[in-house]
Every structure is written in C-alpha cells, then in structure tokens.
C-alpha cells in the first residue's frame, strides 16, 4: 500500500504544471523515504529530477510498504489536479502492484471529498546516475528575476551565454537582429534574503544554453521565491527550485559547446 497525504494540493499542481510541457510521461518512484521523479525531454537535452521527502512537514501522512513505480501521463495528471481546490488536501493512493493511481481531494472544511482514479502506464525509461559534484559557481537569485531574464533575452535569440565571475553574473544573447545583456551584481544590502543575488565562485564559468529550455524551466517559478543555478564549464547547468516543506525540483540542461 502506498498512501501520501499532501497538505497543499497547490504544490503538486505547480510541480506538474511546470513539468508537463517538456516531459509528457514520467515515472513516480515511491519508497519509504519519499517520492522521486526523473525524466528526460524527448530531445534528450534536458532532465528533471523531483524529490519530495517523506519526513518533511508537507506530508501529513506518508506510507509506502514496498517500492513502487507509478507511470503517469503528466497531461492527464494536470487535468485531474485542476479538479482540486488550491487549499484542498490531496491524498495519493496505490496498491502494491498498482494499475491505478487514486487522487482524493479533501476541502478545508471537509464538506467536499472528491476521488479520481487514473490508469497507470508502463513507461520504459532509463534512469541516469546523477553524481553529487562540486560546481565551479553557484548563483542564488530571486526566481522571478531569473524568469524575467530568460523571457527578455528569448526575444532576441535562441541561446544565452551565462558568464559567472567574481563581480556577479552576466546573461547575454546575440541574435541576427540584435543583442542584449543583463548584468546582475551580488547584493549585500537587501533586507529580505529571498531578494538577494549571491554568487559563490570557485572558478569563473562562461557557458551557452538554449533559452527555449530555460524558459520552460521557469514555469516552476511559483514553487519557490529563489532559484539556484549551479555551473561548471562544459557540463550541464542545474536549475534548482527548493520546495518548502517537501524537497526540491531540479532541471539539468546540457550546454551548447563549440565543435
């Protein structure tokens, strides 16, 4: 038996909304330690990794008697989650050898309980090992700032060059019709921590990435006030949205490399 009761259905809604356009079908791997999801986009350029820990406060109840994999069409899951109120508590339930995933939405005043079943899918996807590595540079910034930068620069070109150096971080685009550059300096005098831009730099990095994917990742903006960009030369960038009381959602994007 698997049963996970999430206090905020809005969190699950936001997660699925941010994934469903790039990642059509995905396996939710459930174990006693929590729920993980890893998936590659169809062009094998981007990877997402979601971790929701069972011992965090976002789950009111969590039970997973044996490890199970729930293969789900994320478009369908998004439709089901639209049937939940934002303040509803959502319970996910499945048997030990499941064909069906059940969603139960309880309204805050317990006056309305709705239940939806969806058929599970057999999804053949290869899990990749993602090593824990030290990155040359980690930028922490307001998530809405990152969203604005990606949106602004995508109007002029397909790829952004991210240049991390000791003064801050530069985002540059050069297209056929024009070019643009946004410089972010480290902030030291901002009151709120979530408004700060910080750059932890071991080594400078200059790397280009496809804006199409970065813009897609920023659909997760409402999950978190801040976003962390971790970069090392000639390796994928990690775009991480912490999810309060649950864990995190990370996107990995392969760079564009000079051939």
């Amino acid at each position: 038996m698997f049963e996970a009761k999430m206090l905020q259905s809005s969190v699950l809604k936001k997660i699925i909304e941010s994934l469903k356009d790039l990642f059509a079908d995905a396996n939710f791997d459930c174990s006693s330690s929590g729920i993980t999801l890893q998936d590659m986009d169809s062009s094998h350029v981007a990877l997402c990794y979601l971790k929701l820990r069972s011992d965090e406060e976002g789950f009111e109840d969590y039970r997973c008697d044996r490890n199970i994999t729930l293969g789900v069409n994320l478009g369908l899951m998004s439709k089901i989650l639209k049937c939940a109120g934002n303040d509803d508590v959502v319970t996910l339930r499945a048997e030990d050898e499941p064909n069906i995933l059940t969603f139960i939405f309880d309204s805050k005043n317990s006056e309305r309980v709705s239940k939806y079943d969806i058929k599970l899918m057999e999804i053949d996807s290869e899990l990749l090992g993602i090593p824990d590595t030290d990155y040359s540079c980690v930028v922490k910034m307001p998530s809405h700032e990152f969203q604005r930068i990606c949106s602004n620069l995508s109007q002029l070109g397909d790829s952004v060059t991210i240049d991390c150096h000791k003064e801050g971080v530069d985002f540059k685009v050069a297209g056929e019709q024009g070019s643009g550059a946004i410089k972010l300096k480290q902030t030291t005098s901002v009151d709120k921590e979530e408004d700060q831009v910080t750059v932890q730099l071991n080594e400078p990095v200059t790397q280009s990435f496809a804006l199409k994917f970065l813009c897609a990742f920023t659909k997760a903006t409402s999950l978190s006030d801040t976003v962390n960009l971790s970069l090392t030369q000639d390796t994928p960038v990690v775009v991480e949205y912490p999810i309060a009381q649950h864990g995190y959602l990370r996107f990995y994007l392969a760079p564009k490399i000079e051939e």
């Binding site: 990877l47 090992g129 090593p131 280009s208 990995y252 994007l253 392969a254 760079p255 564009k256 051939e259």
Partner: peptide, 14 residues
Amino acid sequence: KKKQVSISRFFTPA
C-alpha cells in the same frame, strides 16, 4: 558555431 549536445553524454545509466 556552438552545438547543442545531449544530456546523456554527461550522466551514465544508474
């Protein structure tokens, strides 16, 4: 000219 590479180049099967 910069070329987009695949993500699987960087991670090995688990």
